[in-house]
Nucleic acid binder design. Sequence first.
DNA 1: CATGAATGAGTCTTCATTCAT
DNA 2: GATGAATGAAGACTCATTCAT
Lengths: 206, 206, 206, 206
Amino acid sequence: MTALAAPLQQRKSPVQARSAATIAALHTAVIQVLIKEGLTRCTTTRIAERAGMSVGSVYQYYPNRDALLAAVLEKHLGDIADAMVEVCLECRGRPVADMAEALVEGYLAAKLRNAGESRALYAVAGERGGAALADRVYNRMESAVTSMLATAPDGRFEDLAMTASIALHVLVGPVRKILEREATPEFEARLQRQLVLLLTAYFRPE
Amino acid sequence: MTALAAPLQQRKSPVQARSAATIAALHTAVIQVLIKEGLTRCTTTRIAERAGMSVGSVYQYYPNRDALLAAVLEKHLGDIADAMVEVCLECRGRPVADMAEALVEGYLAAKLRNAGESRALYAVAGERGGAALADRVYNRMESAVTSMLATAPDGRFEDLAMTASIALHVLVGPVRKILEREATPEFEARLQRQLVLLLTAYFRPE
Amino acid sequence: MTALAAPLQQRKSPVQARSAATIAALHTAVIQVLIKEGLTRCTTTRIAERAGMSVGSVYQYYPNRDALLAAVLEKHLGDIADAMVEVCLECRGRPVADMAEALVEGYLAAKLRNAGESRALYAVAGERGGAALADRVYNRMESAVTSMLATAPDGRFEDLAMTASIALHVLVGPVRKILEREATPEFEARLQRQLVLLLTAYFRPE
Amino acid sequence: MTALAAPLQQRKSPVQARSAATIAALHTAVIQVLIKEGLTRCTTTRIAERAGMSVGSVYQYYPNRDALLAAVLEKHLGDIADAMVEVCLECRGRPVADMAEALVEGYLAAKLRNAGESRALYAVAGERGGAALADRVYNRMESAVTSMLATAPDGRFEDLAMTASIALHVLVGPVRKILEREATPEFEARLQRQLVLLLTAYFRPE
DNA sequence: CATGAATGAGTCTTCATTCAT
DNA sequence: GATGAATGAAGACTCATTCAT
């Protein structure tokens, strides 16, 4: 994989119904192969086989391997962003402690919902282009968080946009740590609690 | 690359002096090729060429490509860990605000010192085994941070080890964000300040 | 393309009118794709798309890709042969100088009328079977030229059939040369004049 | 094959001795596969197999298939040009009849010496880039012929350079005709005689 | 010890052809 | 008859690794 950012779109859109199912099957297959074999061995052949179709068909939907991987990553990140945006909308006007909790819980939930998928895609995101893609998605989340924070009755923000950005990126590292090992639910709970404390303290200093 | 975790050690240690220089050249070459060509095109041949030696010689020092990449990643992370451990030792007994500042500044400095290298290695770290390797290194840093925090006269830690772990991992996301784009020094300064506020607030709640 | 000579004929002849139009569209499409993409990338799908029909329909008219290409080549050569035959008929009984001029002018005109097409088909003619096909067509022209030359009042032919054959093949090289580069009209004129001189001298030695 | 003209040179030049032999083996293999299988089926794998080496080795010497084919064509044409240039040098100052004969005989000899090779390469020359390559080589021959003709005591040339060019290209068609079928020696002799007459008449009109 | 040519399995990608709709 | 998605064999090319020199 070289230029993940390149052609993200599918090639054609065959009969919608079948198309959607096929694409879903493809994405699932990518995740599975990624988990089972790793990025390097996540070849078009293996993906097609796993998805129960021929290699040629893969190329009916995506112009090349990179585009397929990028699409899967984009979908994954997009889903998370969607979840976060919703969380942000729900918490408007609430105190920062609530916001902190919602943010942490929402992000953890979204990432852990498909732990395997999340884990598998770190490799894809590390590739050329993966970062740019992630960046785009994170911007959407930052906007949502920024808007939400602005409505907090008890927030004190010296640099609102930056605070929102940090609040979000701060979650990335710890959550990845959990994902990379097999964390116990108990450990998860401790971590979650600490992250809430962290953000709450950050949002309402002193 | 398939199993980054595999054989991390070099094969032999010829006349120490030459060996060290060669290995250094190899590591540098890996970084350069990684930056210029990306992980996929970071081949043994290209690395050897860049390092001014023959492919065969590479195999004199590392059993295979993965081991070489892993060694480079390990060295990179190790250097950062070293820097952080030192920072932690220096700050023992100081107030948490100082610790927060030292931590943030130390990490940022270490990562940004070789921004290209840091950026290039994200892809390697995303591969199979990269996470395990990172984990090992982070544990060392966590210990150092834990020890340091324990000496803070004004700290209040409900869950010290976890706090140390989070304090560290919390820096990962924001710093990566900076690295992935071309951030202005001004932006870096703002980010750094916010991160210090974040950790300070976290270390001394209420 | 493997066996150009294979099945040269179309499969069926549906409502004649539509059929003819479709086939014409197909031939045009072949030429266009050939010019734009080259022989290797002149695929059935691309041809069909260019011709505004589906791949399946192409197979309604030709059993396979080779047959289609062969048909186009045959048509091209056939048209040229037709033009030459006509020229030959018109010049019966005229002096060899007139014949030489008519031959040269006729051939040049026929080839240059669709310079792109002519150029594009060289690749097809180079393939297996292309030569055999060309041979057949050239025989027709040779006959016509032979008949014509036999009526010349001032011709002196030691080996009439051979002379006719050579008179024809002699034009091939120079004309191809013109086609392959972008020749100026002025250059064309010079070449044409020289070819007339050549043939005239050949037809009436001493 | 798409851009024959592209990278004509070999990639590296390994130890000269072996290199030369390997390249020769490769060229021979190309011709053989071309003859046996045709251009389309003249694949890198088949060439390598025929040459008794692995595919990888082919790429040690040529950057891609096109470059290899182009090199073979270039060598072929170059050899012919060499022969023709020599012929031209030998005939300086002689009467045009001698020149005509030398030209015809030289070209025929050069082409028929390796009839199979000549035949096989028509397809390659038909591809994109083949023409440009041929053009370059023909220019060399044209110069030689031009120089030679200028020394003829009995020549009358209205347009010397053009005459030389035509004299050369005029041979292309008829010779190809002979090569494409299995011509009898007797037929060859007749053709040769006629071509000599043709050029002689052309060089010394009236 | 160093070198770098040779190997050949393994990748991605394309395309002629078929056939269910 | 038309359509165009599916197929999968086949091709070009790469690259980790070895080993004779």
